[in-house]
Simulated assay, not measured.
Amino acid sequence: MFGKGTKRWMVLMLAGACLLYGAVAGAEAAPQKLALASFKTGSGWYVMAQTMAKLMKGALPAGSQVDVLPYSGGVGNPMLLAQGKADMGLSFPIETGLALKGEAPYKQKIPNLKLLVGNLDTYWYVFAVRAETPIKSFKDIKAQKFPLRLAVLPKGSSGEWDTRKMLAAYGITFEDIVSWGGKVNYVSFPTAVEMMKDGQADAFGQLCTPGHPSWTQLATMTKLRFLPVDKAVGDKFAKEYGFSMSYLPKGSFRGVEANVPVLGFATCLITTSKMPVDVAYKITKAICSNKQELVTAYKGAKAFDPKKAAQAALPLHPGAEKYYREAGIIK
């Protein structure tokens, strides 16, 4: 039916197809060496990242390696991805959104950032003052031109950015505070806690999670007043930066005798468009299918709902999107 030349051609084509299939299959099964950026050793993010790395290694091809980097936080991790120093990173939707747009604290756009898993936990931005101050609201600070001794994390950190933007929403700048006789202290989290405890600072604005040990310690040893965020300000932050109105629940810390309106947000796991689709798919599935392991290691993940993992107002990685569609999480 076929001549010798035709048969030879068909054999060569079949052999070529087999080689191509083998090469593709081999590439898909190749071990992965990935770096996951988190935060300092011992932090909640570092603990969660270690657990994620374990889940990822179990889902990726045999021999794969996932190294957890003990740096550099919500603002810094998108930069590490842009520089190729990490393949994935924990961050917040707010900071990731600013990085995508190239807005401060980012000097240029990082356009290829993609979401893998969102809404991993519960975070609040809180602003607390020592209870003996006459400050009961953000508006009081400006109305009284109070010489506030403010403790805030170093410039470029999430806490510093949030505090600066929050005060600005009430018409207050760091320069105003200094001009009123106050002072802005850029310090580490532990130092800020000590300054509040020792009376060297009147106020501290920073991120907080349920049962946060440092905030628990501070509230236990120092009478605090957590300032409420007005709805109009909360709506502004939701529209412009992706926060949501939340509340610090009654009894969260000593002195919280009623629910306090605050800004809420959650951790997300991001990557770049360079990550292969099959790798992103496996990583997303591994995390969303193993919530209990995350919770066992990191109590903050108790709020994680895999059905809401794609809801972070960020562009999804195609591999993550594939998983969410298969799982019926998005349509």
Score class of each variant (00 low, 15 high):
5 G>C: 13
7 K>R: 14
13 M>Q: 15
16 G>A: 12
16 G>S: 14
28 E>F: 13
29 A>H: 09
32 Q>S: 11
33 K>S: 08
57 K>L: 05
58 G>L: 05
60 L>H: 03
61 P>W: 00
66 V>S: 03
69 L>C: 04
75 V>P: 00
77 N>P: 05
79 M>N: 08
84 G>Y: 04
89 G>I: 02
90 L>F: 07
93 P>L: 04
99 A>D: 04
102 G>Q: 12
108 Q>R: 09
111 P>D: 11
112 N>R: 10
113 L>M: 05
116 L>Q: 00
117 V>I: 07
122 T>R: 09
124 W>A: 06
132 E>A: 14
136 K>C: 13
138 F>Q: 12
138 F>C: 11
140 D>R: 07
142 K>C: 14
147 P>G: 02
147 P>L: 13
163 T>S: 04
165 K>M: 10
167 L>A: 11
182 G>T: 07
187 V>C: 02
189 F>M: 02
196 M>Q: 02
198 D>N: 15
198 D>K: 14
206 Q>K: 12
210 P>I: 10
211 G>M: 07
212 H>D: 07
219 A>S: 13
221 M>C: 13
221 M>L: 13
238 A>F: 03
243 F>N: 03
248 L>C: 09
251 G>V: 10
266 A>G: 05
271 T>G: 10
280 A>Y: 04
287 I>W: 00
288 C>I: 00
289 S>V: 06
290 N>A: 12
293 E>R: 10
296 T>K: 15
310 A>L: 14
313 A>E: 15
314 L>V: 04
316 L>W: 06
317 H>G: 06
319 G>R: 06
325 R>W: 07
